[in-house]
Write a protein that binds this DNA or RNA. Structure first.
Ligand SMILES: [Mn+2]
Ligand SMILES: [Mn+2]
Ligand SMILES: [Mn+2]
Ligand SMILES: [Mn+2]
Lengths: 243, 243
DNA sequence: TCTCATTTTTAGGTGCACCTAAATCCAGTT
DNA sequence: AACTGGATTTAGGTGCACCTAAAAATGAGA
């Protein structure tokens, strides 16, 4: 039950990935972990054993894994680093939102506590990163804003974009082109059957997006009689500058 | 003679260290390298062979090593990263000059070309880092400002501090207390014999410093009849804010 | 020219994070 | 209850950057 395990970059990346899978799918299997991390399943098994030995996950062979509270804490620290760094790079250095994930992926492991706190202060203790993901606080508290997939809306429904997947930078560039970023208002006009494209309206513009893409976009549903749901004006000023 | 070798963190640190030793002592021996890097001499031999295989150094067993032009280029890139990062952390995030070396030591290896250029622009393409070390430009050009060790001045001589060693953060805190940083004017009042302390005047204040410490401080010699050499006023505003 | 302390290399490890191939387990049919 | 395909673990590697101990080369002084 030792509190201070020395955690290296590999361990941090595993824990972060485990956290994300657990967050999205509930349970974490060896194969899912291996797939996300682009390693062979046997490599994942090896590392899982190590994480279990370090009390960072609980592991029952063949039954999957779960973060311990300590493992969760470490994961949230890394996530905090990642998201603060992303936002800092956008806000302070004018990087594009499709560049910062890759950069943060490395920086998150090497930045000191002291530097991360300075960045947090500089940004005014922000709540979300440039892609809408919540930033855990210094003590490991996060408010997970669930939201629904845009793909799950019915035609006629409206939502405010809350978060988009940040891993695919080509996709992010495309979304920016469409005007889709956190706080943008979207109305679903029409959904073609059989996995067809979805027709939506953003800022008055009608657009077609592939249904698979709509699964990477999370929105907060708005009541259908909302004023904004009719005319789709959109007051987002946050990220739109940096595209 | 391939131009694009994949260079990892270990290699970068070796090349940087080799560059520094070469800069200071002319030639680079296995033992000196091992000592600087805190590794066993046999480990250095191993890595040297690898660097030679990659055409980053020339190596004749038992005779020491030398950077190739390609190795030198990589070393200067890392040094550029290191120094720009140090300055950025001081200027943009208000870190103290004794904190930034440690931080830069990690960041230098993981920051992208694109980010480093943004940092360089933000800072206005600066010439020196917070400790007075010259920053190589994007193409690997450096102006090595030689300067002399403060320890080598005779009593009565004056100089402007050009650079201080940045590795020992305790020393840097002490120097800041004394008012010694780049651009500070120093007059040597008296030198006690037999490695004794040196009495100097900084900003009108008289101070005693250990001769060993004076070997880590580089100055540009001023003619003895310089106006500033008499009254020691000092107009430095750069780094003095961040102590 | 020989001697010997110092420098440097060689020999033979270690732990780490990964791999492929081969076993083994598991769960949902038949 | 036996079968079977997919998931998972085990077995046996690799390359990397480090280590200690031992051997070999160097070069400065006798
Ligand atoms: Mn990472
Ligand atoms: Mn993000
Ligand atoms: Mn380094
Ligand atoms: Mn420096």
């Amino acid at each position: 039950m030792r509190e201070f395990v020395k955690v290296n970059e590999a361990i941090e990346d595993y824990l972060k990935t485990i956290y994300n899978i657990q967050d999205e799918h509930g349970k974490v299997s060896t194969t899912m972990l291996a797939k996300q991390m682009n390693i062979a399943p046997s490599s994942a098994t090896g590392m899982i054993k190590k994480l279990a030995r370090l009390n960072l996950v609980t592991y029952e062979p063949y039954r999957g894994i779960q973060l311990t509270s300590h493992g969760r804490k470490v994961a949230l620290e890394v996530l905090r680093h990642h998201r603060l760094i992303e936002l800092y790079l956008v806000e302070a250095l004018g990087m594009r939102w499709d560049e910062v994930h890759h950069e943060a992926e490395k920086l998150e492991h090497v930045i000191s506590k002291s530097l991360i706190e300075r960045i947090d202060s500089y940004l005014g203790h922000p709540a979300v990163d440039p892609h809408g993901a919540p930033i855990p606080d210094r003590h490991g508290k996060v408010e997970s804003t669930p939201g629904v997939k845009l793909a799950d809306l019915k035609s006629g429904q409206c939502g405010v974009v809350s978060e988009v997947n940040d891993r695919d930078s080509e996709m992010l560039r495309y979304l920016a082109e469409l005007g889709i970023f956190p706080n943008a208002r979207i109305k679903v006009l029409n959904i073609a059957p059989f996995q067809g494209p979805m027709s939506i309206s953003i800022e008055g513009e009608e657009r077609l997006i592939w249904i698979e893409l709509a699964k990477s976009i999370f929105v907060k549903l708005l009541p259908e009689n909302t004023e904004g749901c009719r005319d789709n004006q959109q007051k987002n000023k946050n990220v739109s500058d940096n595209l």
